[in-house]
Design a protein around this nucleic acid. Structure first.
Lengths: 208, 208
DNA sequence: CCGCTTTTTTACCATTTGGTAAAGTCACGA
DNA sequence: TCGTGACTTTACCAAATGGTAAAAAAGCGG
């Protein structure tokens, strides 16, 4: 799809594009799209502003490139949920992967959060085409597990969304958590384990 | 503290300050602090830019004013949690109030989220002085309930944080939810009810 | 070492943005 | 109705920002 125009990115091109994206991730995730400036990105990347515009056609292209890359990484943990595994184990493993991802890639998480907060102006299509199908697929899978009595019944959509909410919160609201809790919020893993174990254990208890 | 300088805000002052804050809430919550412009706020308020600067000393003062007002409203639902009530009922009522608040004041929720995402540059002191004490107080209360066996034991801090995460998510990530779920995400209330009922019911079930 | 392409720098620009000065205009009590 | 203080508008700015043109400097195959 882009062979005719761009044959092969030279070594130096690859290196500099990577440096720019790395710097841009820092800046965008910290200040949001409109709050970030090309000068900031340029300085963080150790390049001049016009030089950056030699590698990317503009601010927006940098941002969109980051968002595209992010999408794959972001969907991964959900995609890994195995239909043939033990339901509760699969769900809990997913929660752990997602939490770990928030820990390992807080900048990516904030970039994403920022974009969604502003109404996903540059991401709506990707949500439709990338996230939605996977979301629906996993909802169906979870519903099946529940119908088989292998998980306590709850709305699968809200379940997944709640997992996103709780896990990403640790990255996105770090500034708040830093004030309220010691450092890094230890114990999040075991809390979430307990939360979702009690929610989903098929040995149904008293219903409220 | 400000009697010597400002005696009494005239009727027109009150009206226009309110209009400006209302407009600014729209704009700030949609674009973030740096993404919002005085011109946008001015247009939304139906006033000229210099006129706005007649009522507020600058962009930052408007933002800070909004943040201050927000703080009170935001803490309210948590403050209402009654030490003398039934523990589980109090917690669930809190969850419902918080969710309702996200529904009723999505702009405020986004304003807050934006500020925290950027590292709370204009809010850190308020978190320390306003939120932290209340948070600690309620953590102590919840821990007491748990020690009395009236709630299943979990970390109170993570519990409260998870309530924030799940409820605010419905306002802050609306753009994402709109793609994934029908409209307005019906059933959030009952999902969260189930989630926290199963987590906190003192009739402890199997421990993971 | 040469010539050609790729990369980088220098010097600019137009627009946007937060903010100001100062000249009105309005409201209202004397 | 007239003056005085509260409010608004008009006309500006300086700085910041996204972006461009074109010259200079590196790379690099031959």
């Amino acid at each position: 799809m882009d062979q005719p125009t761009k044959k092969k990115p030279s070594r130096i091109q690859q290196k500099n594009r990577k440096r720019i994206l790395e710097a841009a991730l820092d800046v965008f995730s910290q200040h949001g799209y409109r709050g970030a400036t090309l000068d900031q990105i340029a300085e963080a990347a150790g390049l001049s502003k016009p030089n950056i515009l030699y590698y990317f056609s503009g601010k927006e292209e940098i941002h969109v490139t980051l968002l595209n890359r992010l999408m794959e990484t972001w969907l991964d943990p959900l995609a890994e949920m195995d239909p043939d595994g033990d339901p509760l184990e699969e769900l809990l493993a997913y929660v752990r992967r997602k939490l770990q991802m928030s820990r390992d890639f807080p900048r990516e998480s904030r970039l994403f959060a920022n974009e969604i907060l502003q109404g996903a102006p540059r991401m709506a299509p990707h949500l439709q085409s990338g996230l939605k199908p996977l979301f629906d697929e996993k909802c169906t899978l979870i519903r099946m597990w529940m119908d088989q009595g292998r998980l306590a019944p709850v709305d699968p959509g809200h379940l997944i969304v709640s997992i996103w909410a709780t896990t990403q919160h640790y990255a996105d609201f770090d500034a708040q958590l830093g004030v309220l809790m010691p450092p890094g919020a230890p114990g999040a893993e075991s809390f979430l384990d307990t939360l979702y174990t009690r929610l989903l254990s098929p040995l149904a208890q008293g219903t409220a």
